[in-house]
Simulated assay, not measured.
Amino acid sequence: MINKRKIFSAFFAAVVAVSISGCSMIQKTPEAIANSAVAVVNGEKITNDQLNKDPNTIQLIAQAKQQYGDNYSSNEEATSIIKSQKEQILDNMITQLVLSQKAKELNIMPSDSKINSDAQAQIDKMKKQYFSGDESKFEAALSQQGLTEKAFKDMYISQVKSQEVQESISQYLTKNIKITDKQIEEYYNKNKDKYTELPNKMTLKHILVKTKADAQKVKSRLDKGESFDTVAKEVSQDTATKNKGGDLGTIKANDTNYDSQFMAGANALKEGQISDPIQSNFGWHIIKCTKKITYPVKKLSEVKSTIKTQLESDSKTKLINEKITQWKKDAKITKKEKNIQ
């Protein structure tokens, strides 16, 4: 079981670690460095200070300290990773700022009072969960880490604001999305294998090679009648299965432990069929389905609500991503990665 008090303490430690790092930086460099812009979005700055106080950066620094020690800043590998990760965090901050600006423009920005209230509610829940509601124990824990409740709350306000802006934008954009019975029926007819009484099963063998050309050579040999097991033992790059003739055993048709492209290719095979070259994240495969067990498909009426929920979710995600991409494209964004400290 996860020790929640330890997680809580680690979180405090991460905050303090970055706070100490920040103080050191201020002593060594001009205060202007902290206030320098690392990005400008439609005239609004994101500063080094804001970047370093982002919860994701705090977690990043805590992980660096854990892996490389307190002197992580003198480790070339650590500083390179931190810089790269900070650039990704900055990209997320830019997106959040674009969304906040758009929420203000659309007059759907959550009020400061609501954000503050929700943040306080989360802190109160934390007090109850970790400290049985004992205010003095909570304050003592903060004090031990050199923190005030206000500083701790400020972090939650930032997180809650991001979450609630995203929710407001999502509700605004997707309020008119409707899924028709025709869409549900079409999806059902194209994906009946997803709605069987039990997950379909298939017994598979595969040969993994590095390139498409290599896979085509394997397929050619098999088409000429060579044994799948023999070819697998000779050329397969999958050390776990090659000596077994590429045997993967029997797996469920919806098994998410396998690469999605691999599974799509395997599911398309009939019993006894050998695939053409199929690419996955691991290389190129030739797959053989030696046995297939299929189950009856549920009636549309039994899965209609499930399909509707799935299609609504997919449509909302697609629309939101398209809009955010367009808003970022339309925004005047200047990134200044060289200023990241």
Results as ranks from 00 to 15, higher is better:
residue 166 Q to F: 03
residue 321 N to F: 07
residue 99 L to W: 09
residue 315 S to G: 04
residue 147 L to V: 07
residue 76 E to I: 13
residue 272 G to E: 02
residue 302 E to R: 12
residue 138 F to P: 07
residue 139 E to K: 06
residue 9 S to A: 10
residue 39 A to W: 05
residue 224 K to E: 15
residue 279 Q to F: 00
residue 8 F to Y: 03
residue 130 Y to H: 01
residue 32 A to Y: 08
residue 73 S to Q: 10
residue 142 L to E: 13
residue 242 K to E: 02
residue 18 V to N: 08
residue 163 Q to F: 02
residue 273 Q to H: 08
residue 255 D to E: 06
residue 227 S to Q: 10
residue 241 T to H: 09
residue 274 I to C: 10
residue 112 D to F: 02
residue 210 K to F: 07
residue 254 N to Q: 11
residue 299 K to Q: 12
residue 108 I to T: 00
residue 118 D to V: 13
residue 18 V to K: 00
residue 265 G to L: 01
residue 283 G to P: 12
residue 120 Q to H: 07
residue 213 A to Q: 15
residue 301 S to H: 04
residue 310 Q to L: 13
residue 143 S to W: 00
residue 12 F to D: 01
residue 138 F to T: 01
residue 95 T to N: 06
residue 140 A to R: 14
residue 208 L to M: 12
residue 308 K to H: 11
residue 9 S to H: 02
residue 272 G to A: 01
residue 177 I to V: 12
residue 62 A to R: 01
residue 231 V to G: 00
residue 108 I to M: 08
residue 54 D to N: 13
residue 298 K to T: 05
residue 104 K to Q: 14
residue 85 Q to N: 04
residue 173 L to V: 12
residue 96 Q to G: 04
residue 55 P to V: 01
residue 123 I to P: 05
residue 191 N to F: 00
residue 2 I to C: 04
residue 327 W to Y: 07
residue 102 K to Q: 06
residue 116 N to P: 04
residue 123 I to K: 07
residue 133 G to H: 08
residue 268 A to N: 03
residue 24 S to F: 13
residue 120 Q to C: 10
residue 205 K to H: 02
residue 175 K to C: 09
residue 254 N to H: 11
residue 104 K to A: 00
residue 151 A to F: 03
residue 17 A to V: 05
residue 335 K to S: 13
residue 248 L to E: 02
residue 259 D to Q: 05
residue 327 W to N: 03
residue 23 C to S: 07
residue 70 D to T: 12
residue 163 Q to R: 13
residue 197 E to N: 14
